[in-house]
Amino acid sequence: MSFIDTLLQGILLGGLYALFAAGLSLVFGIMRLVNLAHGDLIVLAAFLILLIVSTLGLDPFLAAVVAAPLMFGLGWLLQYYLLNRTLGKDILPPLLVTFGLSIVIQNGLLESFTADSRRISANAMETASVDFGGISAGVMPLVTFVSSVLVIVALNQLIYRTSLGRAFRATSDDVVTATLMGIRPNSIFAIATGTAMMIVTVAALYLGMRANFDPTAGPARLIYAFEAVIIGGLGSLWGTLAGGIILGVAQTVGAAINPEWQILAGHIAFLLVLLFRPRGLFPRAMD
């Protein structure tokens, strides 16, 4: 029974990792940009939610609703005025600029919020659990998992059913032709990063409510997000969810054997996938 329990915890943890990864995946899919500051932006959003909760006294979920448009704006500005300048054939500038950004955000957070670890309080929900015929699952992990599924459904709807999504796909396929059709790639890219930052806000909400976080927690979130994307295969959001689940299960199984092996087990699962299926388990894109 405890094995099934571990498995369930892992699957639910995978939902959180899929939330970390969805924004990264969206941005890479549309503009081939790997944002090394992605994890730090998640932590930044968590601090933003914390700030709203503590100053306005709002419920964390409401605070996230307030934070989401702010993060959209931040993402839009970041992409439009900074990252768009780095896009091009050379992969060096975007990587180095986002790497610099990651250091800037981390140290900015350290200065503003100190190195103390924080938590967004969710009151009763933190400890509540549901019983499924002998196996109990926390309400928080369940809500996280459902949210990640909803986010992926919504994102798929956006990409495949709306005109904005069509513009995303067109720009991703061929920037020059899309420009000829009246699309302005720079603003499409800015909207895409803004959207990714809204997903980041959702991820940050659950990151902050489920566990402690501090200004240096970003890089590890980036790594989990990246592993989920690669395990799932590039270009497929459902693949990313599957990747997150595999990572989550590997970590909880590792932790069940020896608590020190939790993170290591996740990395090893990632390396095994890279060894046997270098293009991921459910690849869709060609690059």
Partner: peptide
């Protein structure tokens, strides 16, 4: 590939 190499080395 390319940028993913960077994070891969980090992992």
């Amino acid at each position: 590939y390319g940028p993913y190499f960077a994070i891969g080395t980090w992992v």
